[in-house]
Design a protein around this nucleic acid. Structure first.
Length: 570
RNA sequence: CGGGGCGUGGCGCAGUUUGGCUAGCGCGCCUGCCUUGGGAGCAGGAGGCCGGAGGUUCAAAUCCUCUCGCCCCGACCA
């Protein structure tokens, strides 16, 4: 490719729309342009990187017996009604109608459509196991798209679906995918750590997320420095706390105190001169429309996922102001467990609280010295709080540490959730009809590229790993007007092309500084600089993007040297 | 959706508070000269209905109303 022809508009300044490095650099290097919020156009260089990642994914998916298909983006509503997700998915689903008024959606994921495909074609255990995958655009009208490719509304995802006859088969499919993922991310130059996760809306029990630790990550990963435990904070288990009688204190008299305008834990603890951990937060939620309350220690946060799981409800949201004033008799900020007529669920940590500060269910008032069982009863204790760095590891005695993570992939054991709902069954050897046992396995392709950049850049630009660089080599003559340089550069360019090396020749009539800056910004792993000085000595200069190392190489050895560098990934 | 901020040539910004004359600056772009190992220099030039619609006014980028879009912080997920 000639640089003069390459459609890669580089920018000297960072567009104001970008916040994190990967997004800024993708815009500046001319890989990407925004079309609408969370929707992007991939320019030639950006697309080449995407394709490289896809190629690696294909090899590894094919390697575990995956067969590639292409499922539709536009999907009929009926299928989604069959699983109930037409309603469950909510506002996040892009919906549309055809001219007859029939309902469709832009697929946010493809469990329904792939299961529907398989139910009509798979009849017998003899056809199993089956592993189908695709690399396809997905559409989710995210509440908050951000950070370029990190969280888009249109994004490229590789998704594989496995169909097995029994748990054992699913287990094999799951771990095959898990190990393939480890290879895929490693080949992309990423260290992606599998962590225990929550399965969210997709359902299922066993699931791992592959996390790339990076400051730009949107998730908090908790990991144990002593054992192998690692989990997404939204999933990380809290440790059950038993009532500890040694902590018991004398129960003081329950007393109402005025707390004007103090409605947050910070305000109350400051006003009453107590610690947040001596307060109990009472959070009113609507679980499938019915009010319930969660009691959490003041310095802790509620984990809504855990709460929802514990309740077994399909929707859970913070109650609105009206509901709160109706159930507590007070405005937001003064709810408390004493006298509340709705079910109360308490986090384990509340077990050992004595003489706590709670809301009085009365405007501008709180109660002090509230005590469990004497002043209020709870329906249940459970692990409801957000686990944080500093909490005990649920597997060993050590203390958990935390780091930000980018979720680049996730593997799920789905079981029969979709096959049952959609009637995707097969006949076992003994003739019994059984739902297919499913797993699903996703990789965010664009997100993976963004993660690679987050982990591989410097002040000059992107530093691509050789495996996914848009081109492996750029040849830069210092001056194209110098006949000898132009000829030598063109010859090298052609020689490299002949042996299948991906190379760009910077044939522009620009000053060398401009060309070097662009080369660094785009991040070609290898640059060959051809200048009059070295040329006269029969040499060319090979510069490695990552290390900035410069090697003066005799002209005849330039091609073999480059080949060797590419072979060992620089 | 709640909170905060921003829309002015391709990009980055000033001007808006306190309306006023041909709407500015840097970068990029075009032409010429010059220059060629880290985003050079000189000269000339093109490009903007100031996000949109209404309104107030002798006069609106600037004030008012409505609207659209974008970014950041919180609830979702690959």
């Amino acid at each position: 490719m000639l640089m003069s022809q390459l459609y890669s508009p580089t920018l000297r300044e960072t567009p104001a729309e970008a916040e994190i490095q990967s997004h800024k650099l993708m815009l500046r290097a001319g890989l990407l342009r925004r079309s609408a919020t969370g929707i992007y156009t991939y320019l030639p260089l950006g697309l080449r990187v995407i394709r490289k990642v896809e190629a690696i994914i294909r090899e590894e998916m094919d390697g575990i017996g995956g067969q590639e298909v292409l499922l539709p983006i536009v999907q009929p509503a009926e299928l989604w009604h069959e699983t109930g997700r037409w309603d469950d998915y909510g506002a996040e689903m892009f919906r549309l109608q055809d001219r007859q008024g029939r309902q469709f959606c832009l697929g946010p994921t493809h469990e329904e459509i792939v299961t529907a495909l398989v139910r009509s074609e798979v009849r017998s255990y003899r056809q199993l196991p089956l592993r189908l995958y695709q690399i396809q655009n997905k559409y989710r009208d995210e509440i908050r798209p951000r950070f370029g490719l990190m969280r888009g509304r249109e994004f490229i995802m590789k998704d594989m679906y496995s169909f097995d006859r029994d748990e054992e088969g699913l287990d094999k499919s799951y771990w095959d995918a898990y190990h393939a993922y480890q290879r895929i991310f490693a080949r992309c130059g990423l260290e992606a750590r599998p962590v225990e996760a929550d399965s969210g809306a997709i359902g299922g029990d066993v699931t791992h997320e592959f996390m790339v630790l990076a400051d730009a990550g949107e998730d908090l990963v908790l990991y144990c420095p002593a054992c192998s435990y690692a989990a997404n904070s939204e999933r990380a288990e809290g440790v059950a706390i038993e009532p500890d009688t040694s902590l018991a204190q004398e129960l003081e008299t329950l007393t109402e105190v005025a707390t004007p305008n103090a409605s947050t834990i910070e305000q109350i603890s400051a006003f009453l001169q107590v610690q947040p951990k001596d307060c109990i937060k009472t959070l009113i939620y609507l679980a499938d429309g019915r009010p319930v309350a969660a009691l959490i220690r003041g310095d802790h946060g509620l984990n809504e996922i855990k709460f929802q799981k514990h309740l077994g409800c399909s929707s859970l949201e913070l109650a609105d102001e009206l509901t709160i004033s109706e159930t507590t008799g007070a405005p937001v900020g003064f709810a408390g467990p004493v006298g509340l007529k709705i079910p109360l669920y308490a986090d384990y940590a509340v077990v050992n609280m004595y003489n706590a500060v709670v809301g009085a269910n009365k405007e501008d008032h709180h109660l002090i010295n509230a005590n469990l069982n004497r002043d209020f009863q709870v329906k249940d204790f459970a692990d409801l709080r957000e686990t944080m760095p500093g909490d005990p590891c649920p597997r060993c005695a050590a203390t958990l540490e935390g780091a930000r993570g980018i979720e680049v992939g996730q593997v799920f054991k789905l079981g029969t959730k979709y096959s049952s709902a959609l009637g995707a069954t097969f006949l076992q050897e003994n003739g019994t009809e059984t739902p297919l046992i499913m797993g699903c396995y996703g990789i965010g392709v664009g997100r993976t590229v963004a993660a690679v950049i987050e982990k591989n850049y410097d002040e000059d630009g992107i530093i691509w790993p050789m495996s996914i660089a848009p081109y492996q080599v750029i040849v830069v003559p210092v001056s194209m007007k110098d006949q000898a340089q132009a000829e030598a550069a063109t010859k090298l360019y052609q020689d490299l092309q002949k042996i299948g090396i991906e190379v760009v020749l910077d044939d522009r009539d620009e000053r060398p500084g401009v060309k070097f800056k662009d080369a660094d910004l785009i991040g070609f792993p290898i640059r060959v600089t051809i200048g009059s000085r070295s040329l006269e000595q029969g040499q060319m200069e090979i510069v490695l993007r990552r290390t900035k190392d410069k090697l003066s190489v005799p002209i005849a050895e330039v091609v073999p040297t480059i080949q060797a560098l590419i072979k060992d990934g620089e």
